[in-house]
């Protein structure tokens, strides 16, 4: 830093800006590619297999959803069992 720079006003550091921008975009992308879409289809398929060992349900009877609210992740499972008439 030269004597001249010393008297110039200090700008906010660009490195800090880079880091903050990265932290936001990477957290967002990780949520999309890692915790999210990746394992859900597999989980849905395996759950369906397990349930079918006990109850005859249709292909689309199992719905899995992952939600994120206030930093808490909620895994929502929705399993539709056939009504008793259908069973007979």
């Amino acid at each position: 830093m030269s004597l001249l720079d010393f008297f110039r006003s200090k700008k906010p550091s660009s490195a800090k800006l880079a880091k903050e921008r990265l932290q936001i975009i990477i957290a967002h992308e990780r949520a999309q590619t890692r915790g999210g879409h990746d394992f859900l289809p597999m989980l849905e398929k395996e759950l369906l297999e397990v349930i079918r060992r006990y109850v005859a349900v249709s292909e689309d009877a199992v719905k899995v959803k992952l939600d994120r609210e206030d930093g808490v992740e909620v895994l929502e499972l929705n399993i539709i069992l056939p009504d008793s008439e259908a069973k007979d």
Binding site: M1, S13, S14, A15, K16, A18, K19, L22, Q23
Partner: peptide, 16 residues
Amino acid sequence: RAEAGEMMSVDDMLEI
């Protein structure tokens, strides 16, 4: 440049 705040530091990168 990292010390001048113009470049992310090694620590910044490790943190991310």
